[in-house]
Simulated scan of single mutants.
Amino acid sequence: MTVGIPAPPSPTTPTARGGRLLIAAGLVLLVAAGAGVAWWQARTAESTASGTYATMAAAALPDSSARAPEGTRIRVRVLNVGGVPGLARRATNHLREYGFDVVDFGSGRSDGDTRTRISNHTSHADWPIRVQRALGVGVIGTDPDTSRYGDLTVYLGRDWRPPTETLRP
Rank of each mutant, 00 (worst) to 15 (best):
R73N: 11
N120A: 05
A134G: 08
P144E: 05
L135F: 03
P6V: 07
P144V: 05
Q41G: 07
R75Q: 13
S107V: 06
S50A: 14
I5T: 14
V103A: 14
T55W: 14
G136C: 05
R90H: 05
P9N: 11
P14E: 08
E46S: 12
I5D: 12
T153D: 10
R109A: 15
V28P: 02
T72Y: 06
P162G: 10
Y155C: 04
R77S: 08
Y53L: 12
E165M: 11
A49T: 06
T114W: 04
D159K: 05
G19A: 15
G106F: 03
G82P: 01
G36Q: 07
R130H: 04
T72E: 15
D151V: 00
W160V: 01
T15I: 09
G19N: 09
R161M: 12
P162K: 05
S10P: 07
R158H: 05
T122K: 05
G26C: 12
G34Q: 11
V76T: 04
G150W: 00
D63C: 07
G18A: 14
S110E: 05
G34L: 14
A57I: 01
L156C: 04
R117T: 10
A68Q: 01
A125Q: 12
I74E: 01
I140W: 04
L87G: 03
G36S: 10
T12V: 11
T72M: 14
A60P: 05
V28L: 15
P8K: 08
T122N: 09
S10R: 09
R90V: 06
R17W: 08
V102M: 06
R17Y: 09
N80E: 09
H124E: 06
Q132E: 11
W40V: 07
V102Y: 01
Y149T: 07
